[in-house]
């Protein structure tokens, strides 16, 4: 908020070879237990998503209504055939949780990608060009920030129907203003630092200034923001399912599973517990990772921690 300082940490980092970089990341991780945990969990979650068909013991969509609502293996009546039990249509909970990772990560990743791209471009333009363009873009951004996102969700779900792509689009659009704001703020900060001015007076082109000076400094804050927003989107997906507005019921998303399980909370608790745990762990992972990234990528904070 106060006096701005040009970042140097990231530039130094850029100049090293990849082995050194890896070793550097390793050292950074060692220093932070939370970050380490977040990082390990993140890798595990991504691997689970990628190798879901290999890991999952059953087809997550295969129904067997005659074997519905079976408890986890360690409870009376459970079997190791379905270690985490079955849902109301007799589908294997474990396999659904594993495949749910794909849905959640897809929503989170592409949602953030769209929001990030939209937000970064509009924020860059607004912050760099300034003046009326800035006013116009930030006007639109503020309008979108002020409207409850639920209104968008309902409308999009009603017009375009419920599917994965639409959920991603909704999140991408409604979340982009946050990225735009942060980007614009950073751009303004960098511009005011005098650091860009000296580049301009040295005869650098707009493109060069953007790519060499502004973008590298944006990457840190934006990656940190993206990590937190991914966690938020996984959360929103569950919230949308609560309102019956998320992906279609046939898609094994954690939100859908939680929504179905909610009404059996006291009698077949596992149906809602596992997706709840999965959401909590994933959100935790992205939060830990985000905290760590913020510490590492934001030199202002790093300095103050020494």
């Amino acid at each position: 908020m106060t006096a701005a300082t040009p970042q140097v940490g990231f530039d130094e980092f850029e100049e090293q070879t990849w082995q050194k970089r890896l070793a550097y990341v390793g050292r950074l991780l060692q220093r932070d237990r939370g970050g380490m945990l977040g990082f390990i969990l993140f890798i595990l979650i991504v691997l689970t998503a990628i190798f879901a068909p290999v890991i999952a013991p059953h087809d997550p969509l295969k129904q067997n209504l005659r074997a519905a609502k079976q408890p986890p293996a360690w409870q009376e009546g459970g079997s190791w055939e379905q270690p985490l039990g079955t849902d109301t249509l007799g589908r294997d909970m474990l396999s659904r949780i594993i495949f749910g990772t794909r849905v959640s990560l897809t929503v989170g990743f592409f949602g953030v990608l769209i929001a990030g791209t939209l937000g970064m471009v509009s924020g860059l333009v607004a912050g760099y060009v300034g003046g009326r363009v800035d006013g116009a873009i930030m006007g639109v951004v503020n309008i979108f920030l002020a409207i409850p996102y639920l209104v968008f969700v309902v409308v999009v779900a009603a017009i375009l129907g419920r599917n994965l792509l639409n959920v991603i689009l909704i999140f991408g659009i409604t979340d982009s203003p946050i990225f735009a704001r942060v980007t614009r703020g950073e751009v303004l900060r960098i511009r005011e630092s005098g650091y860009v001015e000296s580049a301009v007076s040295a005869g650098a082109s707009t493109g060069r200034i953007l790519f060499d000076h502004i973008l590298p400094n944006l990457i840190g804050p934006l990656i940190t923001l993206a990590t937190f927003e991914m966690s938020a989107m996984i959360f929103y997906e569950a919230g949308l399912s609560f309102l019956g507005l998320s992906v279609p019921p046939s898609v094994p998303s954690w939100g859908n599973m939680l929504q179905v399980g909610r009404q059996y909370l006291t009698i077949y608790p596992w149906i809602a517990t596992w997706p709840g745990v999965a959401i909590a762990i994933t959100a935790l992972t992205f939060n830990l990772l985000g905290d760590w990234l913020r510490d590492v990528l934001d030199p202002r904070l790093r300095r103050s921690r020494k």
Partner: peptide, 25 residues
């Protein structure tokens, strides 16, 4: 219920346009 119906219809060889049942608000 619709999901279950869909599963049983698949079992006798009925498939759905667009790959699955369309769910709408």
């Amino acid at each position: 219920v619709c999901e279950a119906v869909g599963g049983y219809l698949n079992d006798v060889g009925i498939t759905f346009e667009g790959g699955e049942i369309q769910f709408m608000e």
